[in-house]
Design a protein around this nucleic acid. Structure first.
Length: 270
DNA sequence: CCCCAGTCCTGCGGGC
DNA sequence: TGCCCGCAGGACTGGG
């Protein structure tokens, strides 16, 4: 999603508006008039990412952070529907004329941070190292002492930033580790496989522009469907055969920390 | 420290 | 067909 937004770099913010929507508006902070006062006329210097959020760094050193959560989209193209458009940022002086935030469920938010606020919200106390920067040793030092199930721990953004529910199941399947395995019983070799799998899965998913599941919600910044769902090995595949070990009908769904986990009962042993 | 349920929302597909 | 229920790429809070 971030990559599709890179064209806004160099753009000057003309106006920002909260788009009227039927129901409760999404969280935009600070209030839109204060927000506008601080960003209009600013140039976007850089498009970054912090965990699962897109970060627009401005000349003023303030940063606009868009956090899509489950169903939010950061777009530089027409949104999937007019209906759930939440926020618009008009731009001049770049190829992109406007940046939009669209969110069906409205669980996400758009917030403006000063450098100090940004550090408080996303510093090392709140967010672990990025998933793509993780090594076997980093995994082991950060999670190896925990009694938690490894799949639950992978979703803990304070431990590792950027792994979502779908990808946690896929990563553990590639690594051949049972999702309920306690972190403190995972071997060095398994951490190495988890680290390798994290890179393999996330890098491929990024190349594929993410996973567009049944309801079609996830799209890239151009409102195009992703294709990583075609690479899924376990997610939403309960009852199917395993591509890793060839076992028939051994993929199952369980619930951990109130969220779905999928794994192969044959080749991911606890 | 860690679990769990509840909360914020909308919309979908399945079962009856 | 219509209705109800469970479920969803996330994160946070409060209670135990």
């Amino acid at each position: 999603m971030r990559r599709g937004v890179l064209g806004v770099v160099g753009g000057r913010i003309g106006d920002v508006e909260r788009v009227a929507c039927r129901r409760k508006p999404i969280a935009i902070a600070p209030r839109i008039d204060h927000f506008r006062r601080r960003v209009v006329g600013q140039t976007i210097r850089e498009v970054g990412r912090v965990g699962k959020r897109v970060v627009l760094r401005l000349d003023s050193a303030d940063a606009i952070v868009l956090e899509p959560r489950m169903t939010g989209l950061v777009l530089v193209a027409n949104p999937p529907s007019r209906e759930h458009l939440r926020f618009r940022c008009r731009l001049t002086g770049s190829g992109t004329r406007e940046l939009l935030y669209w969110d069906r469920r409205g669980l996400g938010n758009v917030r403006l941070f000063s450098p100090a606020e940004f550090e408080t919200a996303f510093g090392p106390e709140k967010l672990g190292p990025d998933a793509l920067a993780m090594t076997a040793d980093l995994f082991r030092t950060r999670l190896g002492g925990s009694k938690r199930a490894v799949k639950v721990a992978l979703l803990d953004q304070r431990a590792v930033a950027g792994i979502g529910n779908l990808y946690a199941s896929e990563i553990l399947h590639v690594a051949g580790v049972h999702p309920a395995r306690r972190c403190d019983r995972i071997t060095r070799d398994q951490w190495r496989r988890i680290a390798d799998a994290t890179h393999a899965v996330l890098e491929t998913a990024i190349r594929c522009e993410g996973s567009t599941l049944g309801d079609g919600t996830y799209r890239n910044a151009l409102n195009q469907a992703g294709s990583y769902q075609n690479h899924h090995r376990v997610y939403d595949k309960a009852g199917e055969g395993c591509l890793r070990c060839g076992a028939e009908s051994r993929i199952v769904r369980i619930v951990q920390a109130q969220r779905s986990t999928f794994y192969c009962r044959e080749c991911q042993r606890n």
